[in-house]
């Protein structure tokens, strides 16, 4: 098993290196992206900004699935998986917000000093990050590990069922500069085929990086839990 894990890890690292090389290949014969007014080379941010959001979606779904599993089986490992997936999702969410904000500053709001202009999709994504911050606030207010696992799993699922409203229903109703919003062409209509050569591998690569971080943190948290259990057992034995 560990050998297989290391192989997958190496594969993801090599894959992401190739994606990064492709994303920053300037003036080559292949992979030259069309230069559009205003967008110029910033269009390359598509390879980073959008996959980060996809990774966050995947991780929040994973977090909710493990929360359901935790309620069904009362397994502490499911609680760890749910918590770590939410944590990595928040990190990717913050990265997605940052890359989006910088991208917007140099394209949509070029010439102004605006970094944040409450584009609906941007605001809703920020709210989703806040929801997961609230999840960690709730965890910190529960002391008993079993109770913490169950109650926070309930909140996790409850938050997850309201997220589609935030990300898919509302932004499509409101005016937004993002593709696919009211009156804007969808992503599939405006993206050049040559960009997809990098974009789709980048999506896979970022999900792979998310998976690496997630599994690594889960292994660490499980090790910590095992050590704590051993310590408690020793403590009990010395008492009796």
């Amino acid at each position: 098993m560990p050998c297989k894990y290391k192989t997958i890890r190496l594969a993801i690292i090599v894959w992401m290196t190739l994606v990064l090389l492709g994303a920053f290949s300037f003036g080559g014969v292949w992979l030259n992206i069309p230069k559009l007014a205003m967008l110029e080379h910033t269009a390359r941010n598509l390879y980073f900004h959008v996959p980060m959001w996809f990774t966050m979606m995947a991780l929040t779904a994973l977090s909710a699935i493990h929360a359901i599993q935790c309620l069904r089986t009362n397994n502490p490992v499911s609680d760890i998986r749910s918590r770590i997936a939410a944590l990595i999702a928040v990190i990717f969410g913050i990265l997605g917000l940052t890359t989006g904000s910088v991208w917007a500053h140099y394209t949509w709001y070029e010439g102004t000093n605006i970094w944040w202009n409450f584009d609906p999709k941007q605001s809703m994504a920020a709210v989703q990050v806040l929801i997961y911050c609230a999840y960690f606030a709730l965890r910190s207010a529960l002391d008993d590990p079993r109770k913490r696992a169950r109650i926070s799993a309930v909140y996790n699922i409850f938050a997850f069922v309201t997220v589609p409203f935030l990300l898919y229903v509302l932004p499509r109703q409101l005016e937004s500069l993002h593709p696919g919003a009211e009156g804007n062409p969808a992503f599939s209509e405006i993206t050049d085929p040559i960009m997809r050569v990098i974009f789709y591998p980048a999506v896979l690569g970022f999900i792979g990086v998310g998976w690496l971080l997630y599994t690594q943190r889960v292994r660490l948290a499980r090790a910590v839990m095992t050590l704590q259990n051993i310590e408690e057992d020793e403590h009990l034995q010395t008492k009796t």
Binding site: V127, L130, I131, L138, Y155, T162, V169
Partner: peptide, 13 residues
């Protein structure tokens, strides 16, 4: 203080 923290972001939609 926990209820507003949990409630407000969920009620945005």
């Amino acid at each position: 203080i926990l209820l507003p923290v949990l409630l407000f972001p969920l009620l945005v939609p």
